[in-house]
Design a binder for these strands. Structure first.
Length: 270
DNA sequence: AAAAGGCCCTGGTCGC
DNA sequence: TGCGACCAGGGCCTTT
């Protein structure tokens, strides 16, 4: 499930393959992925080169010629593959971009949760990107503290709220709580300014480490078939025993999300 | 207003 | 072995 580090890895990998290639046409095999009218989307992207790929939070931003921009969110299992046009489509290949050099960029998504949509040139100022909080790399202690110190939400829930900070998903939220040595259910309002600063610092280090390692692969995430590079050892998410104290990891549901923590290392701070 | 719950989807796992 | 029930979960929408 791609979070900021995985999306960043996809962005960098994809850029290597598609920059300055011209999209001849797009084939929308499962149109629901596209939030625009199919014909409008196809028309908009056709006969334009991809000039750059940017990223905000977990969104990829494709910058094309003639001030055309579309965003893509991979959600749970979305991925892009580069294939020769004459190869067979794979199961769950939903959106196909045909390039002028005989290759395709194929969007594959088993669960069809991902979405793409056209946005304006000032995409930063329009939804959904305008709704995103800053990434942990950019947010200040003051801003985060202001946003959470009255919140009754759990720390982990706050980490997952893209309006507060963007880029963190369920796996890294669990990891960050672990490194904070905090019970994920602890109310965010209990965090002091000092602990808020630590929350940012730990978020940054966890994300940076994952980017460095090429993103975490769990389940079916895959950037252009480069699997083997992604072997990030997780400290708590999906673990049976604590990687520090060896005691049993507890799994609970918090806001409908699988939440892993070590009851010994992660004490509630009330 | 904030917070909780439902929905979208498929494939894997589980129990009978 | 076969099959149905259930779970996973990001973001958006609806309900409370």
């Amino acid at each position: 499930m791609p979070e900021l580090p995985e999306v960043e890895t996809v962005r960098q990998t994809l850029k290597h393959f598609v920059l300055n290639k011209k999209i001849i046409s797009a084939d929308l095999r499962y149109p629901k992925i596209i939030e625009d009218e199919p014909e409008i989307f196809k028309q908009a992207v056709s006969n334009k080169k991809i000039l750059d790929i940017d990223r905000m939070g977990k969104y990829l931003i494709f910058l094309l010629e003639e001030q055309t921009v579309f965003i893509a969110h991979l959600r749970m299992e979305g991925k892009f593959n580069i294939k020769s046009t004459d190869t067979f489509y794979q199961k769950h290949d939903h959106i196909i971009f045909h390039f002028d050099d005989g290759t395709d960029m194929r969007y594959n998504d088993t669960r069809k949760f991902g979405r793409m949509k056209l946005v304006g040139m000032n995409y930063v100022d329009e939804p959904p990107l305008s709704q995103l909080g800053k990434e942990p790399f950019d947010i200040t202690e003051e801003e985060l503290y202001r946003k959470i110190h009255h919140s009754s939400l759990a720390v982990k829930t706050v980490l997952l709220d893209q309006h507060i900070m963007s880029g963190i998903g369920n796996i890294y939220a669990n990891e960050i709580c672990f490194h904070m040595k905090i019970d994920p259910r602890t109310k965010a309002s209990r965090l002091s300014k000092k602990r808020t600063r630590e929350l940012i610092e730990i978020s940054v280090s966890v994300l940076k480490e994952a980017i460095k390692q090429g993103g975490t692969t769990i389940h079916s995430f895959d950037a252009n078939g480069i699997h083997g590079l992604f072997q990030v050892k997780l400290s708590v998410h999906g673990q049976k025993n604590c990687t520090v104290c060896k005691n049993s990891i507890k799994k609970i549901m918090l806001n409908g999300r699988g939440t892993y923590f070590c009851p010994f290392c992660q004490k509630k701070r009330y």
